[in-house]
């Protein structure tokens, strides 16, 4: 294998990450398939649209925080993650957890009608109108659609999520070499699986080219949160989940 990593080791890494992913997804593939055509009714969408801005922001913050807790659990189960120093574990999660949530979101996105699973049913972009950040919402939907177009398998989503999380691009890592070694193995495993699954030789390159968009979305989210907080400081301080504030504030 590449860089003296044996195929056996790559396979072990892949299996561990796939298992960790499947054990920590909020919904199984079967559950998502069953829900795929259960969409919020016109009245329900209207109800979301007529909510006060801060109420919908709070609801979204709660959903995101919930999803992030599963991502933390995912990270903990990846062999090698808990062997990193605590500083780096926290740093990688702080900077990468929302990116992983966005990658995972493509599982709960229906590209045929551009809807996403939110509070039990699927709904389109217009459902989030009251947030007052159409740019962010439409960028997130575009991203989900573009990731769906790559038709990734559950295994590829698992390995890609791990590759996004365990990244040497994060500033202030204390043991970047250790992170790099782990990341390289994950990429080799991802490459191996993608070569097996896709006729398209550029599939991996296409997938990797989505990473800058992920990071741009997270920056946009932080900016929108700051703008929102200026107008509704009490909502953020009192009503937002503590973990969300800790990560993004």
């Amino acid at each position: 294998g590449p860089n003296n990593v044996s195929m056996g080791e790559l396979d072990r890494i892949a299996q561990n990450i796939i298992k960790s992913h499947l054990e920590t997804c909020q919904y199984t593939t079967e559950e998502l398939q069953q829900l795929a055509w259960q969409t919020h009714s016109y009245e329900e969408v209207k109800m979301y649209q007529s909510k006060p801005r801060d109420v919908l922001w709070q609801q979204c913050a709660i959903q995101i925080t919930h999803a992030i807790q599963y991502v933390v659990e995912f990270a903990k189960r990846i062999s090698g993650f808990m062997e990193l120093c605590q500083n780096d574990q926290i740093l990688l999660l702080k900077s990468g957890c929302l990116e992983v949530v966005l990658v995972r979101m493509c599982r709960a996105f229906n590209p045929l009608n551009n809807t996403v699973l939110f509070e039990g049913k699927y709904g389109g972009m217009q459902m989030f109108k009251a947030l007052g950040c159409d740019d962010l919402v439409s960028a997130v939907f575009d991203f989900a659609k573009s990731l769906c177009s790559l038709q990734l398998t559950e295994e590829e989503i698992a390995l890609f999520s791990a590759a996004v999380l365990i990244s040497t691009d994060r500033p202030w890592l204390m043991e970047p070499r250790k992170v790099q070694k782990l990341q390289e193995k994950i990429y080799f495993a991802l490459q191996h699986i993608m070569q097996k699954n896709h006729m398209d030789e550029d599939a991996l390159a296409k997938l990797i080219s989505r990473i800058p968009t992920l990071s741009a979305l997270c920056t946009l989210h932080t900016e929108e949160l700051q703008a929102f907080q200026q107008l509704h400081p009490e909502t953020v301080n009192v009503l937002f989940p503590p973990l969300y504030k800790e990560l993004f504030n």
Binding site: Q69, V72, E73, K76, R77, M82, Q86, Q89, I90, L93, K94, P242, L243, E246, L247
Partner: peptide, 16 residues
């Protein structure tokens, strides 16, 4: 560490 109390706690909790 103080700044990331909850994240720290989640990492410490044994995997459920």
């Amino acid at each position: 560490k103080e700044k990331h109390k909850i994240l720290h706690q989640l990492l410490q909790n044994s995997t459920s």
